[in-house]
Each structure stands twice: as structure tokens, then as C-alpha cells.
């Protein structure tokens, strides 16, 4: 297990790639954008980027706004 922070919350997860993490979280990769350690990860790299211990992950989506 590794310790990571996802959207501000510390969690223990299995080491995995971003696409697998999104699946685990029940998120459609087409509707989210992801940053790892403040670096934007393009959608076509979700399957190629491994999450490491201590990573700060942000997962965002569109919400209502003015």
C-alpha cells in the first residue's frame, strides 16, 4: 500500500496507474482532469502514469458556475 492525497484527503491505496485509480473511484475518465503533484496529466497518459507514495493527486470536473 502507498499513502497518497486525493483531493485533499490522505488515503492508502494499492500502487496503480491513474486509469485504474479512476476506475476504482467510479469516475469516467472522459469527464475528469487530473493533476499529480501540480502537474497536469493528459488524458492519453492516464494509462501510462503510475501513482507513487506521497503523490498529491487532484481530480476535477465541470460544475455549475458563473
Amino acid at each position: 500500500m502507498i499513502r497518497v492525497t486525493i483531493n485533499g484527503e490522505e488515503q492508502s491505496i494499492e500502487p496503480q496507474r491513474i486509469d485504474a485509480l479512476l476506475r476504482t473511484l467510479g469516475l469516467n475518465p472522459s469527464y475528469v482532469a487530473v493533476e499529480v503533484n501540480r502537474e497536469l496529466v493528459k488524458r492519453d497518459r492516464f494509462a501510462g502514469v503510475s501513482i507513487r507514495d506521497g503523490d498529491q493527486i487532484e481530480i476535477v470536473q465541470f460544475v455549475g458556475g458563473g
Binding site: I6, N7, G8, E9, L25, G26, L27, Y31, V32, A33, E58, I59, V60, Q61, F62, V63, G64, G65, G66
Partner: peptide, 28 residues
């Protein structure tokens, strides 16, 4: 207009704006 915010990880399968306003029907 739309805003960009963190996904709420505790509210899985929640309703989304995109379900009501499909991309392509208007310009975001």
C-alpha cells in the same frame, strides 16, 4: 459558463451538469 472544481469522492454516481446539458448541445 462552467467552473472547474474537485470531484466529490464521497458522492459517487452523483448527478452531473453534463447529464442534463450534453456537450455539443451548447458551447461550454
Amino acid at each position: 459558463t462552467v467552473a472547474v472544481r474537485r470531484v466529490d469522492l464521497k458522492a459517487r454516481g452523483q448527478d452531473s451538469l453534463m447529464h442534463h446539458v450534453p456537450p455539443g448541445s451548447v458551447t461550454f
